[in-house]
Design a protein around this nucleic acid. Structure first.
Lengths: 219, 219
DNA sequence: GCATATTTGTCCGTATGTATA
DNA sequence: CTATACATACGGACAAATATG
C-alpha cells in the first residue's frame, strides 16, 4: 500500500533509458550490432543485467533479437513506416473525433505548438521533430487510454529511429508546424469532425513525404 | 539469408509461453506472488533465465514487478477493463469500417464463429471465450497492421486474466456467439458501416456485462 | 523496535551450442 | 573443415532490501 517507496528505478531501467536516448538521438545506427561483452563493460554492468535490458528494448521494437546471433538496432523498413502510419491514422483520428473540448491534454497540444515555433525560429529541426511528436502524443492522450499512450510512445520512438536514417529533417518537419497550429485552431473552434478529417489528410501527406525521403536514402 | 534456421524458440520464450498459458487458464491467480526460487526449480531453469522471462511478461502487463519485492500476477482493476474496452472500440470498429470485403482475415472470422458454436454445444464456456477472442483478433487483422495485432494479442491476454476473476463464464460469453455470427453476416452482405456501428454497441454491451460481473465478485 | 531469516538485485565464472571467417 | 567468437544458459556468490518473529 506504500506507493512512495516504489520510486526507485532499477539498474536495468536506468540503462534502458540511456540506450533509448542514444537510439533516438542517432548515436546508435540502424542495423548496428550491440555486443553483450562490449556494452556491459561500457556501462559497467554485468552481461546478465544487460541482457534483461535488451529484452525490454526488443519488446519496444527498438532492438531486434536474432537467436544465437545477438541483438541489433532495428532497421525500420518501408513496411515499418507504412504500418506505423496506419496505426497513427486509426488511433489519432479517432481520438480527435471522439474527444471532448475541455480535455486536459489540450494544454499539451498548445504547449507543443509553442515549442515547435520556438525550435523552428532557432532552426533546431530535431527539436521541431520532438515538438511535433509531443503534439501527436497529446492527441492520443485525448482518448484517455493508458495502453494507447504506451503504444504511441513506442511507435514514436520507432519513427524517430527511421528519421535517423534520413537527413533532410527541415524538409520533413518544418511544414507541419503551421499545420499543427491550424489543426488546433479547428479543434478549439469545435469543428471536431472537420479537424479529424484534416488530420487524416495530414497523416497521409506526412507518410508520403517520409516514404519518399526514405526511398531517396536507400543505398 | 537462411530463414528456416531462425525457427528456434529460445528457452526464455518457451517458458514465457507456458506461464502465459497458465495465466489465461486461471492456474495462476491475480495478485499471487511468483517466487524466483520456486518457479525456477519448478521449470528446471536457472534464476537468471526466469528473470528474463518475467521482464517479457511484465512488459505485456500480465505480471507486475515491485522493486525488491518480486513479481506478482497482475490484478486487473475496473480501470483496466475500461481502458481495454476503450482501445477495442477504437481499433476494432475502425478496422471493420475500413476493411475490404475480400480480406483473408475473413476466413479467420468464419472459422472462429464455427469454433464458437461447437464449443457452445459442448458447454465448453472457456472454449467459447477463446473462440470469441479469435473472432475479434481476426477483426483487428482486417487493419493489416502487425503492431495493432500485437497490441490486441496483449489486450486479449489481459482480459482473459480479468475473466479468471469471474465465474459466470457462460453468462459472459455465450450470448455473443450469435452476435458474432450476425455481425459476420452483415459484413459479408457489404453493410460495412452498419456492421461497424453494430460492433460498437456490442462492445459497449459487453463491457457493461464484464464490469457488472466484476463488481459482483469484489470481496 | 530489534534481530533474524528470506528474497531480490547484481555480479562472476563457466560449459555448451551456434554462426561465421 | 577447423578455428574463433559469441550468445545461451547455468549455478554460485554476496550485498541490500524486505518480511518475519
Amino acid at each position: 500500500m506504500n506507493e512512495p517507496a516504489a520510486n526507485t528505478l532499477t539498474l536495468i531501467q536506468k540503462v534502458a533509458k540511456e540506450i533509448r536516448l542514444q537510439l533516438v538521438n542517432g548515436e546508435l545506427l540502424p542495423n548496428q550490432k550491440l555486443s553483450e561483452a562490449t556494452l556491459s563493460e561500457q556501462f559497467g554492468i554485468s552481461r546478465n543485467t544487460l541482457r534483461e535490458t535488451f529484452r525490454l528494448l526488443t519488446k519496444e521494437g527498438l532492438l531486434k533479437h536474432e537467436p544465437n546471433r545477438g541483438v541489433f538496432v532495428s532497421t525500420p523498413s518501408m513496411a515499418t513506416i507504412i504500418d506505423i502510419y496506419r496505426v497513427r491514422r486509426i488511433i489519432e483520428c479517432q481520438a480527435l473525433a471522439q474527444a471532448y473540448r475541455m480535455h486536459p491534454a489540450l494544454k499539451g497540444m498548445h504547449l507543443a505548438v509553442e515549442h515547435a515555433y520556438i525550435c523552428r525560429d532557432k532552426k533546431d529541426w530535431l527539436g521541431v521533430g520532438t515538438a511535433n511528436m509531443e503534439f501527436h502524443a497529446a492527441i492520443v492522450q485525448l482518448a484517455d487510454s493508458e495502453r494507447l499512450n504506451a503504444l504511441f510512445s513506442n511507435i514514436a520512438a520507432e519513427l524517430r529511429l527511421a528519421f535517423g536514417m534520413l537527413d533532410d529533417l527541415e524538409f520533413l518537419h518544418s511544414p507541419f508546424v503551421d499545420t499543427n497550429n491550424h489543426l488546433l485552431e479547428m479543434f478549439d473552434a469545435g469543428k471536431t469532425t472537420e479537424a479529424a478529417s484534416y488530420l487524416e489528410d495530414y497523416l497521409i501527406r506526412s507518410e508520403r513525404m517520409v516514404l519518399a525521403a526514405y526511398a531517396r536514402r536507400i543505398e
